[in-house]
Amino acid sequence: MSTFVALTASGLAAGAIAALAAVGFLLTYKATGVVNFAQGDLITLGAYIAIWVTQKEGMFGLGALDLVPGYIVTVLIMFAIGMVLERLAYAPLRGRSIHVIVITTLGAALVLRAFIGLWQGTTPKFLDSPLRGEVVGIAGANISQQRVLIVVVTIVVVSATIALFAFTQFGRQLRATANDRDTAKLCGVPVNWLSMLAFGLSAALAGVAGILLAPLGSVDLTLGFNFMLLGFAAAVLGGFGSIGGVVVGGVAIGLVEHLFGGYVGRDFKAMYPFILMLLIIALRPQGLFTRGSVQRL
């Protein structure tokens, strides 16, 4: 029983990170129609920036910040990086074919990763957390509080994102742009500004994911890539549209890997999320939670 609980917690935490990654690229997808393949490396970058800000001399030798202020500064920096990324790698290509833009994000991913390697080196680093080493006992299983924090923060962040979409001017404009960019532009929606905001928010979410993920182990250049892949799987399960669906998708793949994979065919559990994803694409491409048929992506 306690193993079941512990594995469920692992699955939920992994699913939460995947969901954060997925919501991150869903934002840019909705605003610009582009899936950002650099999302994984943005997650890695977020973790490294947090390390940079909170350790040794801090950023630009200004002194190390405490953890929580450091996290906030990191998310702000990531937001700015996202906006810059939009200007550098996406804006010059607006109106070009989707393939072109996606390949550009691949290029951006390569540059990001190599840059981090030169900047921070390849020796693993560590990002501390205020909850380090703390555990909470649930039904005989000790769950690290960091994992609980991951789930809680994800719930908060995703709820905020959903609210942002549903109740704010930004959300309405974003939905309008997602529907029909040209018409939205004609109606006075500041589409350029909007896509910069979306990239910024998306990168900020990647930063949050990186900050949450990093204290579980140590940080190296491959940190974010796997979770980007899991995020893709989560997005596919959720139907690549609704944020709620993506979250459920994330939880599903987290549980498939850690809970199901904890009992059945352990050695191969890393591939279960992707098998599930392929099955969904084959049998129900509109996702698990979307009714009716949706236009193919």
Binding site: L229, F232, A233, A270, M271, F274, I275, I281, P285, R296
Partner: peptide
């Protein structure tokens, strides 16, 4: 067969991981 663009790309990434 029913996937195109991103779904196909993501599907092939999934295959590579498997």
């Amino acid at each position: 067969r029913r996937a195109s663009h991103f779904y196909f790309a993501i599907g092939t990434l999934g295959l590579s991981e498997i």
